[in-house]
Amino acid sequence: MNAKRIARFGLLVALALALSYAESLLPSPGVPGVKLGLPNLVVVFALYRLGTADAWALSLVRAALASVLFGSGVSLAYSLAGAALSLLVMCLLKQSGKFSETGVSVAGGVAHNGGQIIVAALLLETTRLAWYLPVLCLSGTVAGVLIGVVSALLVKRVPEFKS
């Protein structure tokens, strides 16, 4: 890793963290897990412009720091599970070549919610969380479209960050 790459990486982590914080200020709609996923803007950007390895590092560092800084005790597991499953699915879809940033982001949004439901079901030892699946599937799709459209613009228009 050269100095330029480290600096870019740090900048994106800071940006993703700031977006995590901004999102934690937004009022919650009342169903756990329903959110915009603003930090995913940076993750999708990194995935397309910096490559898979940097996107993974960015996403996991962001998730860990955000849950330590803005979350409560147990949120680390939820945060990491959501981030990891989301990025795994996004990498697979991107590599398939059949989807644009929007499709990749939509799948990431739904996978993020799915990962968090799985961890919640494991930690709380209950399978009754199925009731949240429809609304989280819907909200993940809608949020994914919004984030994906903006990400596609960023990937196309931000002039710097060519690795």
């Binding site: 644009s100 499709g103 799709t141 994906g148």
Partner: peptide, 24 residues
Amino acid sequence: KTHRGDVLLIAALLVLAGALALFL
């Protein structure tokens, strides 16, 4: 044409959400 995969994916997820809600 360029977003065919995206549209299909979004439609599939919306149908899935609806089917899950209906089932429950």
